Simulated scan of single mutants.
Amino acid sequence: MVLLLVLLLLALLSPTGEAAKIIGGHEAKPHSSPYMAYLQIQTADKIFICGGFLVREDFALTAAHCQGSLCSSINVTLGAHNIMDRERTQQVIPVRRAIPHPRYNDKTLANDIMLLQLMRKANVTTAVSPISLPRDWDTVNPGMLCSVAGWGHLGVNMPRPDKLQEVELEVQRAEECSYRYPYYSTTTQICAGDPKESKSFFKGDSGGPLVCNGVAQGIVSFGKTDGTTPHVYTRISSFLSWIQTTMTEDKWQGSD
């Protein structure tokens, strides 16, 4: 049964298919989340999408399972609301280097976090700007209300929207996820989404931020294939040292 559950989770969020939409949410106010990024990943045989978010002018964060194959190319669109409309606010920047966490496990989705070094620095505007990351001592407690946004599917057998959607979710006790997901880690993951409510992310939202009080605390990672909650988010505060070190290492520099 454990093996079957893992296979179902990977079928939902596998890099070879579409990633994790917003269910039970609503259209976001245009450009109210200027850190949001729309990722288009091109592999040898298909294109799929993920979410992401700008954390520095030349770096974005997303989920490691959004990397695709080794020969993938990734384009990051910033400043978008209607992703199908070439809005003047949009900036499309190729990824220079995708840097998944060195201990990312594609079987259990542990350490599901990836930095994207952009080919050039984003131009910071009212529609494009980085979001703050948590501090070491920040905590995300059960009962906190956070939000998730993305361009993912609106439900099972439903299409993706053109316009950015968002939904408010409640952080849950770790026990709510640990008995649903055998590899859940209280140290490196956050459990969010009231199981009594039909509110969650879905296919296409993987890699987007879980935002609590204006701070990116989590990254959309995985959940049940039918969209029921709670779902699992990578806990960003557990990876601050890796993020900061990676973004400052000389070998990753080179953005214009």
Rank of each mutant, 00 (worst) to 15 (best):
G227E: 09
S255Y: 09
I99R: 01
V156F: 14
A28N: 05
Q165P: 09
I83F: 03
K107D: 09
A192D: 08
T225K: 12
I190E: 08
A174I: 11
L70E: 14
T126K: 12
V156K: 11
E18G: 15
M84K: 13
E170R: 15
L54D: 08
Y35K: 06
D250C: 09
K29P: 07
L7K: 11
Y184D: 02
N105C: 03
L154P: 06
L54F: 00
L5K: 15
Q253D: 08
R97M: 09
R56T: 03
Q244N: 14
A11C: 06
S185V: 02
R56H: 10
G155F: 05
A44E: 14
C177Q: 05
G51H: 11
I99A: 00
G193S: 03
D162N: 11
V2A: 13
T225M: 14
Q91T: 00
R180N: 12
Y104K: 01
P94K: 08
T108K: 07
R160H: 11
V95Q: 02
K203L: 12
V167T: 04
E27N: 13
T186L: 08
I236Q: 10
G143K: 05
I190S: 04
R235Y: 10
V211R: 08
Y181L: 00
T245W: 12
E170Q: 15
V128E: 06
G25W: 08
A98S: 09
C177S: 05
K251C: 12
S200N: 07
D58R: 10
L133Y: 00
P15E: 09
P195I: 03
I49V: 14
L118A: 06
I41Y: 07
F222M: 06
A127I: 03
D112K: 04
R160K: 15
I74Q: 00
G254R: 03
Q172C: 07
I74P: 01
P94F: 09
G17T: 07
V55L: 03
I22M: 04
R180G: 11
P102R: 02
G52Q: 00
A20W: 08
S178T: 10
K196R: 12
T16R: 11
P159W: 10
Q91N: 02
C66P: 04
Y181C: 01
G25L: 09
V2L: 15
I49W: 10
G204Y: 01
P159S: 13
T248P: 04
V140I: 10
G143T: 06
T139G: 07
F53K: 06
L13P: 05
A37C: 10
P209M: 02
L169Y: 07
V6G: 09
H101Y: 04
V171Q: 00
I74N: 01
T188H: 07
Y35W: 15
P130G: 05
L109P: 10
G51R: 11
E18T: 15
V220S: 03
K163E: 14
E57C: 12
S147F: 06
A19E: 12
I190R: 05
E18M: 12
S129V: 04
D106T: 03
G207N: 02
M36T: 02
S178G: 08
M247L: 02
V156G: 05
F222P: 00
T248W: 07
Y104N: 03
K29G: 09
L210D: 08
S206V: 02
D45Y: 14
